[in-house]
């Protein structure tokens, strides 16, 4: 699968990030309602959602720092799982993830990390390509980013 065409892996990551932003906004609105309409509970979810959308826009331009930051963000989401598991060992609470939670909390972040890592590799290869090679989509983007 060549990434050097319109509709590459970066666009897939972009759409996933849009969906994750929506998930966060919905969870934030839920907390606002549960906490008696206190809008302060919407700040952190909206900041993270906006960050995700901004990073996604930069990922499509193959910015290396954006790809790395996105990997770190997704890794933090994944890191919550073992923490929740340990807390769930306490007698009064349990950790019982549903199928949907496994998809949004584990599968999706792992997919974004894998695709971002692939894009970093593609970007490196594109930059190392000899100058007489016909410029591809990724090569153009990577050279743009390097400039």
């Amino acid at each position: 699968m060549p990434g050097s065409q319109r509709g590459g892996l970066a666009d897939v990551v972009y759409v996933i990030c849009l969906m994750q932003a929506s998930f966060l906004a919905l969870a934030g609105v839920g907390e606002v309602l549960m906490m008696g309409g206190n809008g302060a509970y919407l700040i952190v979810p909206l900041v993270k959602a906006a960050t995700l959308v901004w990073l996604a826009a930069k990922v499509v331009r193959l910015r290396r720092w954006a790809l790395i930051t996105l990997i770190v963000l997704q890794a933090l989401t994944l890191a919550a799982i073992p923490v929740q598991f340990v807390i769930g060992l306490a007698p009064v609470v349990d950790f019982s993830p549903s199928l949907v939670e496994l998809v949004t909390g584990i599968f999706v972040p792992m997919a974004v990390i894998a695709m971002s890592a692939l894009l970093i590799g593609e970007r490196r290869r594109a930059l190392q390509a000899p100058p007489n090679v016909e410029p591809t989509f990724e090569l153009t983007l990577a050279r743009e980013a390097a400039r």
């Binding site: 952190v44 929740q84 769930g88 993830p97 949907v100 949004t104």
Partner: peptide
């Protein structure tokens, strides 16, 4: 939430 998600900086537990 219906998507199985929580706000950032939070943990999920079942009572």
């Amino acid at each position: 939430s219906a998507y199985g998600t929580c706000p950032p900086l939070s943990i999920t537990v079942t009572s």
